[in-house]
């Protein structure tokens, strides 16, 4: 099996085919509801359909209980959208994860994002016991071994169909120690990761430096990097991200722009202020996409607009990334 430009396909997911054909890929993100309500998925999916190439389904993000990512991934498949199922190590040991992977493959899931998972103290069940039997890197190793060696983590052979996923991971170029970040990405590559979605990028020069260092280590030929971007919703959100979210680097310039966006609107006109912020946030996001697109080694963008999925079509439009490429069946 090979893609449009002759690169061998190992899984054949749309995401893999687009990346290997050299398209600049756009992925989105869908946060499942804190309920069993299917219609929420359908509504959010409607914003993302045709404007992104594949959609991440978060796995109880920020350790808040939500509909499970595998079920939502299956719903998206039924809606004609390709899912990237997220899998964390917080809530499942290696037995549960492998079991879920067998099930997810059987349901048609073909892309998997391997994460350690947010600590439960951030979520709505801080008294929960966490698992962390594996970490993101040993998870990647396990998924790769199941696919390529047809072996379970314990070394036993998988008799019959093995789960075959296009394997993703995360990277935070802005966490500390900065100089180790490219090496840690290298460890993920060594473990078998094939694509990376980064933490939200606002500090483009710092991200550029990170990418340069990854290039110097020879990593960019071995892994597809999707730059993580997302719209800022308000001035308060910008300030919050700048000061209170670990591993997030929001330059003052964007905080100032969010402040200026509502300068001429009276305080009491809340609706107008909200709309002005949203317009500016979307504009900044589209600009950042255009900037990261110019950085060598960036194979696409991952738009994180959780709980504001409706902003995605406008962002993709403004970034000049429509229409999305179609693949022959």
């Amino acid at each position: 099996m090979s893609g449009d430009n002759g690169k061998e396909l190992v899984v054949g997911s749309k995401l893999e085919r687009l990346l290997k054909a050299g398209h600049f890929v756009v992925t989105g993100e869908l946060g499942p509801p804190q309920s069993a309500d299917r219609s929420v998925i359908e509504k959010k999916a409607s914003y993302l359909r045709d404007v992104v190439d594949a959609v991440n389904i978060t796995d109880n993000q920020t350790a808040v209980v939500r509909m499970c990512s595998m079920a939502v991934a299956k719903m998206l498949i039924d809606l004609g959208i390709e899912p990237i199922m997220q899998m964390t190590c917080r809530d499942r040991n290696r037995i549960a994860i492998q079991s879920d992977l067998l099930g997810a493959y059987a349901l048609g899931v073909r892309n998997l994002l391997c994460l350690t998972g947010d600590h439960q103290s951030f979520g709505n069940h801080p008294q929960a016991k966490n698992v962390h039997d594996l970490d993101s890197i040993t998870l990647i190793q396990m998924v790769r071994q199941m696919r390529d060696a047809k072996k379970f983590q314990c070394g036993e052979e998988i008799k019959g169909q093995e789960p075959r996923f296009f394997i993703g991971g995360a990277a935070n170029p802005f966490a500390d120690p900065f100089e180790f970040r490219p090496y840690r990405l290298g460890k993920k590559v060594k473990a078998g990761v094939e694509f990376i979605q980064t933490q939200l990028i606002f500090n483009v020069p710092k991200f550029r430096e990170f990418m340069k260092r990854c290039g110097d280590l020879g990593l960019l030929d071995k892994v597809y990097i999707l730059a993580g971007v997302g719209p800022i919703k308000s001035l308060a959100a910008a300030r919050y991200m700048a000061t209170s979210v670990p591993g997030m680097d929001v330059p003052q310039e964007y905080i100032d722009r969010m402040a200026n966006a509502v300068k001429s609107i009276p305080q009491e006109d809340k609706k107008a202020r909200r709309e002005a912020w949203e317009r500016e946030g979307i504009k900044i996001c589209a600009e950042i996409i255009q900037q990261v697109r110019e950085i060598p080694g960036v194979a696409g963008v991952h738009i994180m607009s959780i709980e504001w999925e409706s902003a995605v079509p406008e962002i993709v439009q403004q970034a000049g990334l429509l229409p999305r490429p179609k693949l022959d069946a």
Binding site: C89, R90, T116, G117, H119, S121, F122, N130, H132, D135, S136, I137, T138, A170, A171, N172, A175, D176, P177, F180, R184, K187, Q199, P246, G247
Partner: peptide
């Protein structure tokens, strides 16, 4: 998180995000 291959993305200024 008892990571074997850290530091994770929540390491900032030498401190743990938790």
């Amino acid at each position: 998180k008892s990571l074997m291959n850290g530091p994770c993305g929540g390491s900032q200024n030498g401190k743990c995000e938790v």
